[in-house]
Amino acid sequence: MSATTPSKLEKMLKAGHQAVTSECGPPRGSDAEAIKEKARMIKDHVDAINITDNQTSVTRLCSLAACIHLKLAGLDPILQMVTRDRNRIAIQSDILGAASFDIHNILCLSGDHQSFGDCAAGQNVHDLDSMQLIQTVRHMRDEGKFLGGEDIKRPPSMFVGAAANPFADPYEIRVPRLAKKVAAGVEFIQTQCIFNLDKFERWMGEARDRGLLEKVYILAGLTPLKSAGMAKYMKNRVPGMDVPDEVVARIAGVPKEKQAEEGIKMCIEAIQRLKEVPGVAGFHVMAIEWEEKVPEIVEGGGLYPRPKLD
């Protein structure tokens, strides 16, 4: 299958390689060195790097500017864009801005509610939702037109992604929801952090049965746990997260100073297992404020060195 955009991630996937992506959160300040340093730590071990967009609604340096910094450093960033903070004018404008720097990947999200962040008293926009954002990018790219119908001079050339949470409720629509995103035009999916591997495999099986895996690349999302405390926090406090009791028990079962190491080990084991699941097109490693561990995880998972593209 030939790639439709210059995205390295798209080429990697279409060449049949399991892709590896990771993510970096921009700093809470204007010093770009922080994000560039995070990216340098992982750049040889991943094919593309997500830049989060004011994640958990905490105000940070903008995703677009951070992506530009990475792009200028020769990396392949994935622009995360939430519909929480922008109307359709700002969305199309930012897409063009990203395209002007030849940023070739976008991840379309709705974004956490602002009540989680540092501006709980703020408005949210949600002029579009994440599916409509997928449609918007595809429309701009494929039709070369604005939502308003006018032609775009030099349309964006972006590989279009979205998130999927195989664990959120209601479970009965998890696969239909994926089908809906595919119908909207999504080309790759990065999943929510997978701790419940059985449930993820069941979701993949159902997606495969519906023929969705021929239409979309699924990157399995993985987050190494740093401690039993983090495991419990994610289990109990993070919406839509499914951390089974045995996962918490395993990390809580080792001494505190060994828990981080155990967390990395568990993450690597998950990659090794999920690599064999038909349809898993790659991995999205979200090492939250722990980017330095990404190389170890990628190597441990047998995903290094990264394949060279022609």
């Binding site: 939702d129 994440s130 409509q132 999927a164 949470n165 409720d169 839509g240």
Partner: peptide, 10 residues
């Protein structure tokens, strides 16, 4: 969200 739910439904 007009095409929901978002990932935060629990």
């Amino acid at each position: 969200v007009l095409n929901g739910p978002c990932g935060g439904s629990t």
